[in-house]
Write a protein that binds this DNA or RNA. Structure first.
Lengths: 144, 144
DNA sequence: GAAAATATGAGACACAATATCAGTAAGTCC
DNA sequence: GGACTTACTGATATTGTGTCTCATATTTTC
């Protein structure tokens, strides 16, 4: 629940993969590390990280994505959202109103994946599962 | 396994929702109806449907999407693919190489959804599950 | 500290998709 | 059928996400 580990992990993830830990990359990693709760859009990250070009923000985001420490979620009819990956392998809940993202892990999902493996022709190289929700705060706001 | 029902359903789906069944819409619906096996991109559809503006193709595609007779699949790092919906509620397999799309339905998935409902805070309004695969023909091609 | 490798950023570009809006076609009423 | 209303179309512009280019700057290595 502390902020430090996630931030350190982000920077470590870049170094572990042989990338240089430069000033701009540190700034991007730190900004991402700060987003513990919610998902964020790439553009909002660009706006937040000062003194860093858009291209570099996108490039660094891509590196973090490849390193598996950040996830990208397609939204139904909207801009994709990014979020810090806290669990090794997991799935997401996304609020369709405010974009808040949650993470969950359920062994039942993995069981489905294994059982589907027998039915599906071809080699499974990945899977994704998302729950679209209306979060409790948006639900409360809707009533008012 | 016949083509006719799906085509008729597409046009009926538009009329049932109170939209006019115009020439351009018929052409789009027919082109979509022809894509029984594979998914397709919006742009490929634009190229295929003659004498019809891009905007209209996109608009009609959106109407079909809302009517639930066509599905939109986000691809990992690529243009989203569309496909004819043949099953009431279902999930997809997508070949990450050629983009071929398959449909499957598995009650285990729905069981996961129900069990997750208890753990997730907020109201579940939808969910999606995709398997990314390398289809048998792409796998065969890779060996050569 | 010089050379090589790598990273940066401004801006151009690519692509999917939507918005605008004048013009056109379809349904509706008499 | 003609006038009217509503819905639809399409050329074009615009938005939004993301990538490419390339000259410049920064690191690393020797």
């Amino acid at each position: 629940m502390t902020l430090a580990p996630a931030r350190r992990d982000l920077q470590a993830a870049l170094q572990d993969r042989g990338y240089r830990l430069t000033g701009p990359r540190k700034r991007v990693a730190e900004a991402v590390g700060r987003k513990q709760e919610d998902g964020f859009t790439a553009e909002s990250l660009c706006a937040e990280v000062q003194d860093t070009g858009r291209a570099t923000v996108y490039r660094t985001l891509k590196l973090l994505l490849e390193a598996g420490v950040v996830c990208k979620l397609p939204m139904p009819d909207g801009a994709p959202r990014y979020m810090l990956a806290q669990l090794e392998h997991h799935h997401h809940t996304v609020c369709v109103r405010c974009g808040a993202v949650g993470e969950f892990r359920d062994t039942t999902v993995e069981r489905v994946v294994r059982s589907m493996g027998k039915e599906i022709t071809g080699e499974i190289v990945g899977h994704r599962m998302e729950f679209y929700i209306i979060c409790t705060s948006c639900k409360a706001a809707r009533k008012a």
